[in-house]
């Protein structure tokens, strides 16, 4: 677990050039590594029936990978009729970003009343797993700010660029099933879930959610089984137990590949 960033009131000063370089190196390597698999999102999105503009809009405006994969996955299987369930699932998956914001705001909003609204909006838009993880991992507030912004911008640039590459490639290869793109989607969701299964109650939640979704598939429209699976989190979360530290983003340095 990374040390928590010291929050408001910590002494400020210039970062040494070495520290600054180290933070920038970490930020951009995470950004490039994460951005690269925007190519898989782009390809899966057009395979699911979204056009190039819709695909690119998701990477530019939604900009949170798990939600993007979920939206196109559900629309891909359920069509337009499943759109409300797809929107609800994508939104619920993004709630964790709001939880990260509760932590990152301590070093990003220096005197909340004076932070320009544009700056706050930009910070909000860039608040994802990677930018939060790199920011929160820095012990000094200046390094935390530097790491958050650079990681956020780096992921944004490469994620959008590679989405475009994937969407263009995906639109020329034809029937996605022949190429195993449905298998790629399954693998991608499992890879997104994997780093979240370290805590025992997360594993229990995933197991209960799996059973709920399996049981509901024959009885409810496409997309809805996923919403019903969310009940597992509500029931197990309310029952309580030991979650360890709450709302920590997966750490891109210790959890294998970063997850958007």
């Amino acid at each position: 677990m990374p040390p928590r960033a010291m929050s408001e009131g910590a002494p400020t000063g210039e970062l040494s050039p070495e520290r600054r370089r180290a933070v920038l190196r970490q930020s951009w390597s995470v950004g490039i590594a994460t951005g690269l698999y925007g190519v898989s999102f782009g390809a899966l999105s057009v395979a699911a029936g979204l056009n190039l503009w819709q695909t690119q809009a998701l990477s530019a405006l939604m900009f949170t990978g798990g939600s993007q994969f979920a939206l196109v996955g559900i629309v891909g299987t359920g069509g337009l009729a499943a759109a409300p369930a797809a929107i609800a699932t994508a939104t619920m998956l993004s709630i964790r970003n709001g939880l990260y914001a509760l932590s990152t705001r301590r070093f990003l909003l220096t005197g909340a009343a004076h932070t320009p609204v544009v700056r706050t909006a930009a910070a909000a838009h860039l608040t994802i797993d990677e930018s939060s993880a790199v920011g929160l991992a820095q012990p000094e507030p200046q390094a935390a700010r530097l790491g958050f912004w650079h990681t956020g911008v780096a992921v944004f640039l490469f994620w959008n660029l590679m989405t475009l590459v994937g969407a263009l490639a995906g639109s020329v290869i034809g029937d996605p099933a022949t190429w195993g793109l449905d298998g790629a989607a399954v693998a991608a969701f499992l890879a997104l879930l994997w780093p979240r299964l370290k805590a025992a109650d997360a594993r229990l939640t995933a197991a209960v959610a799996t059973v709920l979704a399996l049981v509901m598939v024959p009885f409810v429209p496409a997309g809805v089984p996923v919403l019903i699976a969310a009940v597992a989190a509500v029931v197990i979360g309310i029952r309580g137990g030991t979650t360890g530290r709450l709302a920590d983003p997966p750490d891109p340095r210790t959890d294998g590949d970063p997850i958007p």
Partner: peptide, 10 residues
């Protein structure tokens, strides 16, 4: 915190 695990499993 548990929501992503449930949704992704579903």
């Amino acid at each position: 915190t548990l929501l992503p695990a449930a949704l992704l499993a579903g």
